[in-house]
Design a protein around this nucleic acid. Structure first.
Lengths: 233, 233
DNA sequence: GAAACCCATTACATACGACTTATTCAAGAG
DNA sequence: CTCTTGAATAAGTCGTATGTAATGGGTTTC
């Protein structure tokens, strides 16, 4: 998905991005383009393009005569899906999941309220279908299927809000849900209460009940946060 | 601030980014690296680095034999501060301001609630100072000074929330506030009610009143949305 | 005549080497 | 001790050459 083509550029970018996001290169560390070219066995051209991309993500800063310095975490473009993926693959994945879940708890209720007002008939139908799919896969170790419906559900709500900033968080939410499912052991079936909440949320949106949709989404978010508290220190 | 050095790369990137964000290059339009190199009178190397950066922002897609195609708006990384700046400079600035203000109305109340719980003494002091600064500049055509305090105020709240995703929205909020102030005619003094709300919000955070902070921030957001409704169609 | 196959064209992808420029650091002059 | 100056350094820029994949047309085949 991310690596559309196994090009040289993509490979080096991913490797470097992962290293930096994982903290292997602490802030202030300087990288030399020549060294990187040698290390990855690519030309300086490719390295420079990668550096430029990392620079646009504010992960590094390139200055003459000094080299490429890793910037402190607070300056990274943490909303870049690529950066999110790199960080979720690293060691502080729990902290990252918590930050993102708190963000979800702020955004999704408002988005759901807007969705209740603006959702089209097609979106309502799709939402109900996803909720049904979640019910159908909620028992019997079908976590992968459940995850797929869960992701689609939240993406539709964000899209239906009619706000493009919300809509573009669909990828972020997908990463969070996938990360949560794949992180913890997959022996447990999803929380039945959460399934019920999703079904009722689909109803609320269909009926245009903005306040109800917002409240139900808040409950879902609280459940997600609580789940994190239980499973992560 | 953004353009630290008037390098060739930065110049071309800004020019192309602005063009695309402004919609001068509609989605599907193909650009040729050779043409761009000629147009900007730079080498293909520079153009390719720029293209790579635009590609990482999902503004364009580069494919062999076909060229660099502009991607549809829905796929852009609209949380990239650079993209936000480009779009705010373009023609659909009102729409953009509305989207971002709705995002603020979702995020900032929750952030304020968290800030009331986690703010340090220094942050509380700085918040109060900003509120005082807003009061001091709220009359007599001192909009620039008011804006500076307003931006600092919201940035502190987002920082004090302790959530890095919220904290990183400080730049976005700054762009929105600056865009709003510089967009509308600057003859009018800021809304006195908004000033009062900020003062009370600083108090609520200092007293650790999370619910109050959240409610006050919601009121500020409602005011901002209403202001947009009045000034933009 | 339609579908499958092949090949030449095209524009990006990668590489390499030369030169430029800004920045730093240190040595030397005042 | 401060300021100036200059040498060293690593990124910035450029031009060119070659690799590579996707497209479009032409040919073959059934």
């Amino acid at each position: 998905m991310t690596t559309q083509s196994p090009g040289l550029h993509t490979h080096v970018l991913d490797a470097l991005g992962l290293e930096i996001a994982a903290g292997d290169c602490p802030p202030g560390r300087v990288l030399r383009t020549d060294e990187l070219a040698q290390r990855f066995d690519v030309s300086r051209t490719v390295v420079r393009e990668v550096i430029r991309v990392l620079e646009s993500m504010h992960l590094v800063e390139s200055r003459r005569r000094v080299g490429v310095t890793v910037r402190p975490t607070e300056e990274w473009n943490v909303y870049d899906p690529q950066v999110i993926r790199w960080r979720l693959a690293g060691s502080d994945r729990p902290r990252q999941l918590r930050s993102l879940t708190v963000l979800r708890s702020a955004v999704e209720p408002v988005a759901a309220g807007l969705a209740a007002r603006h959702a089209t008939a097609e979106q309502c139908a799709a939402l109900t279908a996803c909720a049904l799919g979640m019910v159908a896969t909620s028992r019997g170790q079908q976590l992968e299927g459940y995850l797929r419906h869960d992701i689609a559900f939240h993406r539709i709500v964000l899209d239906a809000s009619g706000n493009e900033m919300f809509a573009r968080l669909g990828d972020v939410v997908a990463e969070v849900l996938a990360g949560r499912t794949h992180h913890q052991v997959m022996f447990e079936d999803p929380d039945p209460a959460a399934v019920t909440l999703h079904v009722r949320l689909a109803e609320a949106v269909r009926e245009g009940d903005a306040a109800g949709a917002e409240r139900l989404t808040k409950e879902i978010a609280v459940g997600a946060l609580h789940e994190l508290d239980v499973l992560a220190p």
